[in-house]
Design a protein around this nucleic acid. Structure first.
Lengths: 207, 207, 207, 207
DNA sequence: CAATAATCGAGACGGTACGTCACGTCTTCTT
DNA sequence: AAGAAGACGTGACGTACCGTCTCGATTATTG
C-alpha cells in the first residue's frame, strides 16, 4: 500500500515514479485480446483468465490496472472507437442522417456489433460500463448529429422548435431495438424509410 | 436412460407416464423464487444454488426440468406475463397508442423492469432466451398494437399504405433505447411527444 | 405404520398377512444382481441404484427389505454360500487341512474372491457386515476344521493340549494376509509348505 | 496447459519452476487433517470436502495435488510412518520377533489401527493404495524382520534352508487376520504362543 | 364379487458430496 | 516497482447417488 502511494505521489508531482515503468506492450496486448475474446464469446463467458493467457500476461497485471471486468471491457471498447467519425454534410438533413444511420447499422452488423451488444448487456448490471458506453460511443455520435440538425434548422429544412433529443431517439431507437431484440432485419431500406417517416413529422409548417 | 425414454414415450402418447409425477408445487416455488431473485440481484449474480435454497428444493430438481439459467429465466418470465393485457379502444389512434406505451414504461420503471432488462441482457448471448422474450412479451403486445393500427386505418386516421412494423418500431424503439441505455428519462410526457412526432408522419395526405 | 404392524402381527401369529405377498422373484433378482455387481465393481462403487436398475426392480423394493448396503451385501453373500462344504477325512491331518486350504485359495482366486474381499473391506466400517462374514463364512469352515483337528488328536497325530484357534489362525491367517495385502502369490505349493511348517509345531512330543 | 507443461519441464531440469511455489503449510495441514478424519470416521465417510474445511484450505488445492481419495490417504499414511522403527537385537529370535509383533498389535489396537484398517479396506478396490501400504508399511518392517532371521540363522537358532517369506507370513498373517476379521482377541499372550508354535517348526534338526 | 391391504416398477423429490472452474489475491523470481 | 507464472482460498457450477415419497397397477385375503 505504502509503495503505491509513493508512486502515486510522484505521479501527481509530474515526476516519473521509481521502479519499472508500466509496460505499454502488455497494456495493448490486454486491450486487443479483450476485444477479440469479447467478439468471439460474447460477455457471458468472457474470462479474465483467458485474456491473460492469450495476451501472455500475468493475471495480476490485468487486475493491477483494471478493477473489474466492466472497467476492462469499457476501456478496451473505448480504445477501439477513437477512429475519426465521418459525418457528412451534403446539404440535406435526410441524406446526412440516413448516411449516419447506415454507418451505425454497418457497425452493428459487423464483428464489432457483437462487442457493442456485449457491452450493452453487461451494462445492464454495471453502471460504469453503461456510462462508458454513453460517453465513448453514444455522445460522440450524437454531438455530430446535433450539428447536422442545427444545419437543417438554419437551412429551413427543420422546424425551429424541434426537440433534438426526441428526434434523435426516434431515429436511432428503432435501430437499437432491432439490434438488441432481433425481431426484424437491420437493412439500409429500413433506415431510409425510418428517416422518411420521422423527418416528415418535423418539417416546418407550410403556411 | 431406458426408463427416461419410456416415460417420454408415454407422455408422447398422451398417457400418464409411470413414476412419481412432477411436483407442481416445486415447479411454482422455483419459478416464483427465480423472479424474486432476478429482480433483486439482476442477471449477473443470479445463482441457481440460491434459487434452490430459497425455494426449498433440491438443486437437481431445478436441473431436471431446466437445462440452464436461460431456460429457467425465460420460463419464469413467461409464467409471469400471462395476465391479461389491456389495450384500449378509445376511437383515437393517438390516445390508444399513448396509453399502451405509458403502460410499457410503467412496467419498465417497476421492479419487473429489472427482470426485463436482465432478460434482454442475458438474451444477447442466449438465442433461446431472446426468442422467449419475443414470443412471450413482444409479440403479444404487438398483436394488440396491430389491431389498434388497423382500426385507425379503417377510421381514416392513418394512411392505408403504412408499414405497421416500421411504425411500431418507431414508437417503441425509442422507449427500449432509453430503457437500456439510460441516457434520458422515460416519462409520460416523452411518450406523448413521441406519439405526436411519429404519428404525424403517417397521417393521410390532405389532398 | 399401522398397516405394517398389522402385517407383522399376522406374521408373528404364523398366519399369512393380508395384502400382496412379497415377490420371491424380485428378491432373488436383487440378490443375484448384487453379487454380480459386487464381483464386477468391488465395494467402492457398488450402487443400489445400479442393482435396482439391472434387476428391473424399484429402488424402494430394495430399501423395503434391506436397511442398507451392508445388509444387502451380507444377505447376498450368505445366499451364495449355502452350498455344501466338502471337508475330507483322509486319515491324515496334513492331507485334510491342505485340501481344505486349497479349496479356500481356489475361492479367493475365483470371481467370488472379489466378493469376499469386498465384504472384508466394507466390514472394516460395518460391524454387522463383518459379523455376517464370520457367521456365514468363517465359522462354518472352522467348525469343520475343528472336527479335523479332533480326529487328528484322537489318532495321536496331534498334541492333546493344542489350542485349536491358535493353530487354525496360524494356518489360515497367512492365506488371508496374502489375499488381502497381495504381497505374494497364493499357490497350492504355498499352502503345502505352510501346512508343513505349522503342523510340525503341534506334533506330539517324541518321548 | 502450456504453462503447466512449462512448470513441469522446469521441475524436471531441477530448476525452480516459475510462479508461486507450492504452500508447504497447506500440504502439511491437509495430510494432518486427512489422518485425523480417517481415524475418526473410517474410510466409508471420509470426505475431501471435510478435509479441506478442517485444514482451512480450498478444495481445489487438495485436488491440485492428489488425484483422488486413495492417493491422498496413501500419502498421508506414508507421511506418518517415517518415524524410526525400533527392531531389537536381543540375541534370541523368539524374543526379537515377539517384541516386533507386540509392537505391531500395539499399533493395530491404537487410533492408528483404525487408519491401517481403513487403508487395507480401501486398498481392496484401489491398487495404488494397497501398493502404498506395502511399500510404506509392510516392506520396511519386513526388511527388519529379514535381518532378525538372518542373525538367527547365523547363530544356529534357525534352519539354514528356511523360507523367510513363508515364515514371516506365518507369524504376521494370523495377526492381520484377527485384526481384520475380529473373530478373536489380539493379545500379547497370543503373540507369544504364536511365536512358539511357528518358530518350533523352523528349529534346526537335532541330529 | 367387492373391499381392503400390501407389494410392485417407475421415477421425482430434498439432500449432500463430488470434482471442475473462474474468481481476485498472493508469493516467488526476473526484468 | 512492474513483469510473467502460477498456487492460494472461495464459492458456484452441473452431476450422481442417497434414501424417501407418490403415483397407478397388481395380487393376495377378508367380508
Amino acid at each position: 500500500m505504502r509503495q503505491k502511494l509513493l508512486a502515486a505521489e510522484y505521479r501527481k508531482n509530474g515526476k516519473r515514479p521509481p521502479g519499472r515503468p508500466r509496460s505499454e506492450q502488455a497494456r495493448q496486448a490486454i486491450l486487443r485480446t479483450t476485444l477479440r475474446i469479447l467478439g468471439k464469446n460474447g460477455f457471458s463467458d468472457f474470462k479474465i483468465e483467458e485474456v491473460a493467457a492469450h495476451a501472455s500476461v500475468g493475471k495480476a497485471t490485468v487486475y493491477r490496472w483494471w478493477p473489474n471486468k466492466g472497467a476492462l471491457i469499457a476501456d478496451a471498447f473505448a480504445s477501439s472507437t477513437t477512429r475519426k467519425l465521418r459525418f457528412p454534410d451534403t446539404g440535406s438533413v435526410y441524406a446526412d442522417m440516413s448516411q449516419q444511420m447506415r454507418q451505425l447499422i454497418k457497425v452493428f452488423r459487423s464483428r464489432r456489433g457483437r462487442i457493442v451488444s456485449a457491452i450493452l448487456a453487461a451494462g445492464q448490471s454495471d453502471k460504469d460500463l453503461i456510462e462508458a458506453f454513453r460517453e465513448r460511443f453514444l455522445w460522440p455520435r450524437r454531438r455530430e448529429a446535433y450539428a447536422t440538425l442545427r444545419r437543417g434548422i438554419e437551412r429551413g429544412e427543420l422546424r425551429k422548435d424541434l426537440d433534438p433529443d426526441l428526434l434523435l431517439d426516434s431515429l436511432y431507437g428503432p435501430i437499437y431495438m432491432r439490434f438488441l431484440i432481433q425481431h426484424d432485419r437491420l437493412t439500409p431500406e429500413f433506415v431510409d424509410r425510418l428517416c422518411e417517416l420521422v423527418l416528415d413529422g418535423v418539417r416546418p409548417q407550410k403556411n
